[in-house]
């Protein structure tokens, strides 16, 4: 049932060995506890080594892992009483974005996020987490509901990008994203955005104009997909690993560049190895950030948010 990534091979081999020895111990009633313990230690050390030195491309593989927790997993694990709200009240209900009201440790909030599917069937329904304009319009409706009733807003970001399709263009994909950016910039309630997996360009930013931008340790956030960048600059998609490095898209890169505010640690081996631990780290961070932000008035929040984005960018004046 497990799916392993290329760079996890050495770990998997060791783990298999341990399993075999364990079976052997059971059947032959031989005591191999010593050897097993040694191998376990070795496996743990190897894991730490591999996962503390991941390349940007390896992190991309990790956030695209089919077992990685998605928005609804985190909503269920970090919040209570989630009431999902559907539809943009105009065209349809885009299932690539979910949202609604929930309680975070008793505090009512609204939450929206991109939602990927885990298997083919679910991915068709969720369109691989790639929203249409109606998805952005639904998310804005829910965020504005939060503002109207003074509820803080939490957004989970996890999308390869906004969907490039005929219907999406006919219904104004560009305009829908732009309106989210404009409106999010002056919502008078605390707004925390968290990249849990893939932060794919404008489609990600469409839910991302927060007072705080947080990222999970292995999450990525990029102006263009590494494959897209490689196709344009190198003229071959196989150069995606090089593009991934050049784009500075890891949480660590972006914290260093002061684009994001905080990196939330993942369990060793990635969030999919332990949903509960990931969720608990996320919950702690969300609560702390909301506690700080709820001390500010609506006016202060909007002013600070404006200044936050106003300062972004590097240039030379002469």
């Amino acid at each position: 049932m497990s799916i392993y990534l290329e760079f996890e091979k050495p770990i998997v081999e060791l783990e298999r060995k341990i399993e075999e020895l364990e079976k052997f111990t059971d059947s032959e009633e031989m005591n191999l506890a010593g050897e097993i313990g040694e191998l376990r230690k070795k496996a743990e050390k190897l894991k730490k080594e591999i996962f503390s030195n991941l390349t940007p491309w390896q992190r991309i593989k990790l956030v695209r892992h089919p077992h990685r927790p998605y928005t609804l997993d985190y909503i269920n694990l970090t919040m209570d009483d989630f009431q999902e709200l559907h539809g943009d009240r105009s065209f349809s209900d885009d299932k690539a974005i979910v949202g609604g009201m929930a309680k975070l440790d008793g505090r009512p909030i609204v939450v929206v996020g991109h939602q990927k599917g885990r298997d083919t069937k679910e991915n068709l329904k969720r369109n691989f987490g790639m929203p249409h304009p109606e998805g952005y319009r639904k998310s804005l409706r829910i965020m504005e509901l939060g503002e109207k009733f003074g509820l803080p807003i939490i957004t989970f970001i996890d999308t390869p990008g906004a969907y490039p399709g005929i219907g999406a263009e006919e219904r104004g994909q560009a305009g829908a994203i732009a309106e989210n950016l404009r409106e999010m910039s002056h919502l008078k309630v605390p707004l925390v955005s968290l990249v849990i997996g893939e932060g794919g360009s404008g489609g990600a930013l469409g839910l991302g104009v927060g007072d705080r931008i947080l990222m999970l340790e292995n999450a990525v956030y990029s102006v263009i997909s590494p494959e897209g960048c490689a196709a344009i600059l190198w003229k071959e998609r196989s150069k995606a690993p090089e593009a991934a490095k050049a784009l500075n898209l890891t949480a660590q890169n972006l914290l260093g560049l002061e684009i994001i505010d905080e990196v939330i640690p993942e369990p060793l081996g990635g969030a999919h190895r332990n949903y509960e631990e990931s969720a608990s780290n996320i919950k702690k961070s969300l609560k702390r950030n909301l506690e700080e932000l709820t001390k500010l008035s609506g006016r202060e929040l909007v002013e600070r948010r404006y200044n936050k984005y106003r300062k972004m960018g590097k240039f030379l004046e002469s």
């Binding site: 404008g202 930013l205 991302g208 990029s222 102006v223 500075n248 684009i259 984005y309 590097k314």
Partner: peptide
């Protein structure tokens, strides 16, 4: 990179 994306916001 992300400096460009943030110009949208």
């Amino acid at each position: 990179g992300m400096f460009s994306l943030m110009q949208m916001a």
